[in-house]
């Protein structure tokens, strides 16, 4: 239990043994994520102000904050999507962009609705799998495993599809991993809380 938090005001809080979307999973030994002094300003708005924390490997860690607290901005900085004004964020000791095959190291899901409406769910997963060098047929295997057939839809506004199809996206990078099993065990109870 080495998670430490350094936050100010209504900033985000890293807490263990909770789960919240957006979420991020890693498969590494040692500290999975180390964040130090992250800062980001959008125009005049200070979105993230000096956030530091460590996430240990092998734990489920929740990163919580009210709307606008900067949780998503922090995660996006950790993932190299947003450039930090100051501070560092490393995953398994490296900045995200320097991971050899990031999709196989980190499963990140920031927005469950991030899909092209004109593309079927299966094709959406095939595109992402192909890009990551994973055979496109794995999309179908995973969909079968979680009991989803999303040939026609990407997102249904409520119910199972919106919570599960993106989670398949999250798992696609790790063939036969234990995380997949954890997820399958969790879904029954987690779904109620998440939706």
């Amino acid at each position: 239990m080495t998670t430490s938090t350094s936050t100010e005001g209504s900033g985000p809080v890293a807490r263990q043994a909770g789960a919240a979307l957006p979420c991020l999973t890693t498969t590494t030994a040692g500290p999975a994520i180390q964040v130090a002094g992250l800062r980001k300003k959008f125009g005049r708005v200070m979105a993230v102000d000096d956030v530091s924390f460590t996430v240990s490997a092998g734990r489920i860690t929740g990163f919580l904050g009210p709307n606008g607290a900067g949780t998503t901005t922090t995660l996006r900085m950790v993932l190299g999507l947003i450039r930090a004004d100051a501070g560092t964020a490393v995953i398994a000791g490296k900045p995200y962009a320097q991971l050899t095959n990031p999709a196989r190291t980190v499963g990140a899901l920031l927005d469950a609705a991030a899909a092209h409406p004109g593309r079927s769910g299966r094709d959406h997963l095939r595109v992402l799998a192909t890009q990551a060098g994973i055979p496109g047929r794995r999309a179908g295997q995973l969909l079968d495993r979680v009991g989803l057939a999303v040939d026609d839809v990407v997102v249904i506004s409520h119910g199972r599809t919106i919570t599960q199809a993106p989670l398949v996206e999250l798992l696609a990078g790790r063939p036969g991993s234990t995380l997949e099993d954890i997820y399958l065990e969790l879904t029954g109870s987690a779904e109620g809380e998440l939706s």
């Binding site: 190299g80 991030a114 899909a115 092209h116």
Partner: peptide
């Protein structure tokens, strides 16, 4: 622009950070 509009730019850049 479709990648930005439908937010698919996020998973695309996550898989290929460069």
């Amino acid at each position: 622009t479709g990648e930005f509009r439908h937010k698919t730019i996020t998973p695309a850049v996550l898989i290929t950070p460069r």
